[in-house]
């Protein structure tokens, strides 16, 4: 039973890591129907920003709490400006083009950003400081779930709740939903669709930056390629839960994380990906729109 609980928490940790990234994927898809492949790179840029800012602040002797807050703020702002710029440069000019064009543009952006960071930084792994301290009250449970695991779990829960709240109850959220339902109609009733889409990208990128900060602090190392691998898994989780649905992305992430942890624990880690993707195929056979996704009916 102990072993089961240990594996369960391993799965939750993985799941919440995926969720932090998957939320950004699913949000953008929900509003404009684009799979933003550059999202993983925004996460990576957020992590690099956090690394640089936190190193500088630590050198100047700021207290840990101030370092965390300022680093998070800087990473969020920097990554959000990247998200905004990418949308303006690579997606907005293609908005009326066939669906494939922005997708290719997104892949191009992803490759561009990876190589840009590779050249601007190095290809070597860089150590990332442990920004999340080891909490004293967690010590008795440290062998099951660490402080950084807990922080990631709590933050992804808070982010999911805030995001749902924003989309359900605020004016911006209403405008987002209207844009998602019918972009032309939303324009006709006076919604600035361009602004709404920009805000979506900014929010998604900010989430990715927070993810970058927390996850890099948990893993302790980053390089230019982390966004790609994490992005693929998070994307899988978003599809599993029903892409476009915010609770779906979180549910999908946890299912993916738990499947991988139990497959590793009870079968073999050689096959963790096999189990994860078999599950994806099974769910897509029975629920093609994902677990919580809405099946769209094509009107003829």
């Amino acid at each position: 039973m102990d072993y089961f609980i240990e594996l369960f928490f391993s799965g939750l940790t993985r799941g919440s890591i995926y969720a932090l990234i998957a939320l950004g994927y699913t949000m953008v898809y929900g509003i404009i129907g684009l799979i933003n492949f550059a999202h993983g790179e925004i996460y990576m840029i957020g992590a690099f920003t956090a690394l640089i800012v936190s190193t500088v602040l630590t050198i100047y002797g700021f207290p840990l709490l101030a370092v965390i807050v300022l680093t998070a703020l800087a990473a969020v702002i920097w990554a959000a400006s990247y998200g905004y710029t990418i949308e303006r440069l690579a997606y907005r000019p293609l908005r009326s083009a066939p669906r494939l064009s922005p997708l290719i543009s997104a892949i191009g952006m992803s490759i561009f950003l990876q190589n840009y960071v590779l050249l601007a930084q190095t290809s070597d792994f860089q150590p990332f400081p442990a920004l999340i301290p080891e909490f004293d009250f967690m010590e008795p449970y440290a062998h099951i779930v660490g402080s950084s695991d807990l922080a990631i779990l709590v933050v992804s829960a808070i982010v999911m709740i805030l995001l749902t709240f924003m989309i359900k109850f605020t004016r911006t959220g209403k405008a987002m939903r209207a844009t998602a339902q019918d972009r032309k109609m939303a324009m006709l009733v006076g919604i600035n669709v361009d602004n709404v889409i920009s805000i979506t990208f900014i929010t998604g990128s900010a989430l990715a930056a927070i993810g970058g900060l927390l996850i890099a602090s948990h893993i302790g190392q980053i390089n230019f390629y982390i966004g790609f691998i994490a992005g693929i898994k998070a994307f899988t989780a978003a599809v599993l839960g029903g892409i476009g649905s915010i609770p779906g992305a979180v549910l999908g992430s946890f299912i993916l994380g738990l499947t991988e942890a139990f497959a590793t624990g009870y079968v073999s880690s050689d096959y963790e990906d096999v189990f994860a993707f078999s599950l994806l195929v099974l769910i897509l056979i029975f629920k093609p729109a994902g677990l919580l996704g809405k099946a769209t009916v094509e009107k003829v």
Partner: peptide, 20 residues
């Protein structure tokens, strides 16, 4: 005797398995 997937975000499951 186990293989892990390079680049994964978290290895806590395999670490628990080593402990067990």
């Amino acid at each position: 005797f186990e293989g892990v997937t390079p680049g994964a975000v978290d290895y806590s499951a395999v670490v628990q398995k080593i402990r067990r």
